Simulated scan of single mutants.
Amino acid sequence: MEQSNVEGLFEQIDNLTETVQQDLNETYLDSLAIVLEAVFEGEPQKELTEQLQKLPDTASYEVVEVRKAVQLAILKGMKGATQEQHLMTPETVALFAGYLAGKLTEGQKSLRVFDPASGTGNLLSIVMEQLDDVGDVSAGEVDPTLIQLAVLSANLQKKEIEFFHQDSLRPFLMDPVDLVISDLPVGYYPDDIRANDYEMTADEGHSYAHHLFIEQSINYTKEGGYLVFVIPEFLFESDQSDKLHAYLQENAHIIGVVQLPESAFKSEKNRKSILLLQKNGPETSALKQPLLAQLPSFKNTEAMNDILAQMNQWFKENMNK
């Protein structure tokens, strides 16, 4: 039932978006933002009254159905995207990151959560659905189209998220959080002057944005707080990885690394893992045996259930609640 509701709502949103796209000669994603705003407000901008006569009523859908329908529309708009930051975290990967975040923070009340590179907010929304008790949630995103879609998507899902439209490697006006969750942007950071403020700045040339995002995230995490990153598989083997190793050794404990299945990604070079960290604090200590796991295909239910049972056991034995 949920699937047909999702498809039905997606089709309505998609049809309206294509109409606006043709009429205003905008990109699909920008047209989608116009449509989602009209759906949220309950009425379109005056100049689009004719094109957007029949707006869907999202109140008659479950929150997850709304998220998935919007997600499908965003994915359609991103199909032709060449920029890495215009790609969405796959649903299965986001669900698994949420499962791990839930395990790390089990029993904690009124969690403060932050995603410094939120894109359209899909990863953050999925993780929020899997946490026991969420308090303040905030997100940073520099891309104007992506943050607009993220805000509208959150509004339609009735999720309270504070969004910062800024370069997330600049300072934030916020207190440290209990949990950072992020699909790290991969590549070079062009602002060498700003990069000099970081311990992991490159000795020469541009610094890696993904390294600086880890450092920035740790800066905004409480002592003893947790970080869940979707990382490129080559993270610990790149030419600047010695700085990363040294920084992590000084500032955090590695809780675990979970390799995601090859089948979840288009090519080997796009493969990712999930890195789990805990920020150092007076009551924290390194684990004798971090969680190291390689996931089978998400479609292999039996193998997945088996590894989940093993991981649940690991959390039970190794994480002091």
Score class of each variant (00 low, 15 high):
L16S: 01
A303E: 12
F236M: 14
T201E: 13
L169C: 08
V63Q: 14
E62P: 00
F10V: 09
A139R: 00
G8F: 13
K269Y: 07
L173G: 04
K279S: 06
A94P: 04
D14H: 14
L55Y: 01
D167R: 14
K54G: 00
T89P: 09
N280V: 08
D132V: 02
R112W: 10
A309M: 12
E223F: 01
R271Q: 10
E199C: 12
I181S: 07
S125F: 12
E50V: 10
S241V: 04
H165M: 09
Q108H: 07
G107Y: 09
I161W: 01
S168Q: 05
Q148G: 14
G225Q: 03
L292C: 03
N300Q: 06
V228W: 11
K272F: 00
K316Q: 13
E84K: 14
D175L: 11
H210F: 03
Q249C: 08
Y226R: 08
T120R: 02
G98T: 09
D23C: 00
V63C: 03
S138V: 09
R112A: 15
Q45W: 01
I254N: 12
N312F: 08
L9T: 10
L100T: 04
D136C: 00
F96A: 04
S285Y: 08
M174P: 02
K222I: 07
T201D: 04
P190D: 15
M1S: 15
N122C: 01
H245R: 15
A69W: 05
P116L: 07
I274P: 13
L48V: 04
G77M: 06
G256A: 07
K269G: 05
H245G: 11
E2C: 06
S263E: 12
K54T: 04
L244G: 00
L29D: 06
T284K: 03
I307E: 07
Q108K: 13
Y208P: 01
A139L: 04
P171R: 12
S31G: 06
D242S: 13
L111W: 09
N219I: 07
G98P: 10
L72Y: 08
V142S: 13
D192L: 13
V20D: 03
Q130T: 09
S138H: 03
D175V: 03
Q108M: 13
E47R: 15
L291S: 05
